[in-house]
């Protein structure tokens, strides 16, 4: 399937994966993230159950200490 991850096209070798799996596959290393699928917020404890499918738009944002 093809998805849009942080505004970039990505090919994933599966028809559907969970958002938690996507985060692992793509190796997002910061421990704190804000995630959205198709504009809707997905909180941390919902990521294992949140499906990512062909054509979905996924945003994964790092939270970075400092201010």
């Amino acid at each position: 399937m093809e998805i849009l991850l942080n505004n970039r096209k990505e090919s994933i070798d599966k028809d559907e994966i969970s958002l938690a799996e996507l985060i692992q596959i793509k190796n997002f290393t910061f421990k704190l993230l804000v995630t959205k699928i198709n504009g809707a917020l997905v909180r941390k404890d919902e990521r294992a159950e949140a499906p990512v499918r062909d054509g979905d738009e996924v945003n994964i944002l790092h939270m970075i200490s400092g201010g």
């Binding site: 910061f30 421990k31 993230l33 804000v34 917020l41 939270m63 200490s65």
Partner: peptide, 11 residues
């Protein structure tokens, strides 16, 4: 300052 607080307000 802290990442957890940033996540909390954005969410």
């Amino acid at each position: 300052d802290i990442d957890t607080a940033k996540q909390m307000i954005i969410e």
